[in-house]
Design a binder for these strands. Structure first.
Lengths: 221, 221
DNA sequence: GGAAACCTGCAAAGGACCTGACCGCGACTT
DNA sequence: AAGTCGCGGTCAGGTCCTTTGCAGGTTTCC
């Protein structure tokens, strides 16, 4: 029950994979070549996993991956390839891939890996108007290329607020998230952190602002 | 003439396999349970192939595999199992296995597969990101011709960090990888090693730097 | 106007990390 | 057997960042 984007030029392989994914309950969008993949997949933030063939007729799958990444697509990418050579695998990873499957592959294994990637999520995306990305793997936020590192406490706090975009997160909940051990005394410390988080949001040019709801808490809009 | 690591709790099966491998000219090291396997196999970089029983008395073979992987063991892993079910096969692969053999198996087939794996080297042999190359066989890093030798501990540590290029690897994970036996007391020792690794990265002129993320861990960028 | 809630700038304290040096141990050499 | 060397691990001191809280200004609500 996740949305999977598939780019594969070989019709028979494509059919098998699509049927397998659909049968497993996933929604599938397909592209036949690299250009179509970029067009269809780049702006779609509902995609949970991207499956890319490396050997495409019009482009290298890795270039497609890079293009998707630079277009803000943050879904994990799994590469399919007939090339078993190590350096291809490596090039795939350095292009921003999250997993790799050499052809010929077992369909069940592909399904297992796709689902693993979908579960893992890898990134918490906050897409509302622009695409602000919260990256737990790097403890950073990113927006259109620009990136800012967060301290552990800042990150916990922001994560709590972005977990429910648009909604108001109560001050108490923010405190509980930022200080899981139950420590913390001074209320004002929260404000200090909010201030610093706001500064970093501004640094990356985020279209989303950390809005305060007086007497209640904070929300991201 | 390859070194094979075997972990199997059943004495009769173990004896048969060991004799078969030795007869074929391989060197064999054995473990009886998961803990012993991790202890013996994790730090041994001369191992060409690891053969793991999935059903061990003290642990799931897949967990052992994960532990070995995170400890920097890069040899291909072949699973033995009495379970023929597909989902076990898949779980095995997702745990980082390279091949799979259901019991009861023909000794000749096991030998053939072990040798195939030994020849092939390993699925993820050289982990590299950018132009930096990590060579497990020589315990060295190289960058555009220049090369530097790493000590075993340094290598395990760097391997753990390069396994996820760009992402932050938690300090805890780094420690687990560098000291697979769970030893290690002084936190500062990690810093010392990081320092040495940085020096060697600089020696070979690596474009990638070992970046520290305060309060979290390290990442390679 | 006044109080509460919030923002801002700043600075102290403590922790995390870096650095350079040191020492013990085992392996290898002589 | 003694010496040498590389590796693993530790230590002390310094640096820098994170955390925390204060003090005072500003906004909002009654």
């Amino acid at each position: 029950m996740a949305k999977v984007a598939l780019c594969e030029d070989d019709p028979s392989i494509r059919r098998i994979v699509v049927e397998g994914l659909r049968h497993a309950g996933h929604e599938v969008v397909t592209a036949h070549d690299g250009r179509e993949a970029v067009t269809l997949f780049a702006g779609d933030d509902t995609i949970a996993v991207v499956v890319l063939d490396i050997g495409l007729p019009d482009a290298d799958g890795r270039d497609v991956c890079l293009a998707l990444r630079s277009a803000g697509q943050v879904a994990p990418v799994l590469f399919l390839t007939a090339l078993g050579a190590v350096h291809d695998r490596l090039a795939g990873f350095s292009a921003g891939a999250d997993d790799y499957l050499p052809k010929p592959f077992d369909l069940k294994e592909l399904l297992a890996r796709v689902e693993a990637l979908a579960r893992r999520g890898r990134l918490v995306t906050v897409s509302s108007a622009g695409d602000l990305v919260l990256d737990p793997a790097r403890h950073a936020i990113a927006c259109e290329g620009r990136e800012a590192a967060l301290t552990p406490t800042e990150f916990r706090m922001l994560a709590a607020i972005t977990s429910r975009p648009g909604e108001v997160v109560r001050r108490r909940a923010v405190v509980a998230a930022a200080w899981p051990d139950g420590a913390m005394v001074n209320e004002n410390t929260v404000d200090s952190y909010v201030r610093r988080i706001r500064a970093k949001l501004a640094d990356v040019g985020s279209p989303l602002h950390l809005h305060t709801v007086r007497g209640v808490g904070f929300s991201l809009r």
